[in-house]
Amino acid sequence: MQTPMGVILAGGQATRMGGGDKGLLRLGDTTLLSRVVARLSPQVGDMALNANGDPARFSDYGLPVLPDSIDGFPGPLAGVLAGLDWAAEQGAETIVTVAADTPFFPTDLVTHLCKMADGMAHPLVLAATPRGTEKTKSMSRSGLIRHPTFGLWPVALRDDLRAALGDGISKVVIWTEKHGGREAVFPTDAGDPFFNVNTPEDLATAEAMI
């Protein structure tokens, strides 16, 4: 498998932070987004940022800014689709997505996702952690907690995803399970590697973590 492209998902509305761009919040001596860029860049080929609104606010990062192609903020799958369309234009086969508000995700994220995709005709793998981590996002049948904004996605299924979004499907795992998606499990011995900043209290916790 060729090295995936990287897409940072920052298209949410950040309602629990009072709106605005969570990725531009300061964390230590830099921004959340800068920490995510630095963590992802060694793991992927080219990178892009999925965000809506005026792209000029991200000009300092030097990344292509990809707006959702589906109106109404339908969720992270719209950002995945924007990333897949961009990657298709670059001739790429896959993308790996990460969230712009999750600064401590694994440094071996891409390696582990790709390893779990071995043998799949269409590599489709979500990150997961064992049950018991603090923030339950999406529980799988096997009792794992899935982190649906962290995944490996095949460009070959972008039109299928577009059709699914057009039919009103917005929940990530509904679509991934339809295509036999797998889970790559990451350890939580040192804490939840997918801890994300949703509230001012979370930001204070992240400050303590660094």
Rank of each mutant, 00 (worst) to 15 (best):
G11R: 00
W175E: 00
A163N: 11
A100K: 00
V36A: 03
W175H: 08
N196D: 13
S59W: 05
P64W: 02
D160M: 05
P67F: 09
I169Q: 12
L157D: 05
T15L: 14
I95W: 07
L77N: 02
G191D: 04
S140I: 07
V185R: 13
S142M: 12
L66M: 08
N196H: 15
E201Y: 04
S69C: 12
M47H: 09
A48L: 09
G11S: 14
P193T: 03
P130Y: 10
A208D: 01
T107F: 09
R141H: 11
P123M: 04
G91H: 14
G6F: 08
I169R: 06
S170T: 15
W175F: 15
G53E: 08
A190Q: 13
F104I: 00
V65Q: 09
L165C: 02
L27Y: 03
T205Q: 13
S59A: 15
E93D: 15
M116Y: 01
M120L: 13
A127D: 04
I210A: 09
L152F: 03
L113P: 09
L113F: 07
D85Y: 10
V96R: 03
V37W: 02
D60L: 09
T102Q: 11
G79E: 07
P103Q: 06
M116C: 12
V7H: 05
H112F: 00
G23H: 01
A121Y: 00
F73M: 07
A163I: 11
T94Y: 02
A87G: 04
L25G: 01
G12L: 05
T97C: 11
E89V: 14
E134H: 13
L77S: 02
D167K: 12
K135Y: 13
E177S: 15
I8N: 00
C114L: 12
G53S: 08
G45K: 04
V173M: 14
S140T: 15
I70W: 07
G151A: 11
V65R: 11
D21P: 00
T30H: 07
L157R: 12
L126Q: 13
G132P: 12
H147K: 12
L24Q: 09
G143D: 08
Q2N: 15
P67H: 08
N52Y: 11
V197F: 01
L124F: 11
I8V: 11
L25P: 04
D60G: 11
D85G: 04
S170W: 07
A10W: 02
P76G: 14
S41P: 00
K137A: 13
R162V: 01
F73H: 15
G191A: 01
A208S: 12
A99C: 11
G6D: 03
G6P: 02
P193I: 04
D160G: 01
S140E: 07
D167N: 14
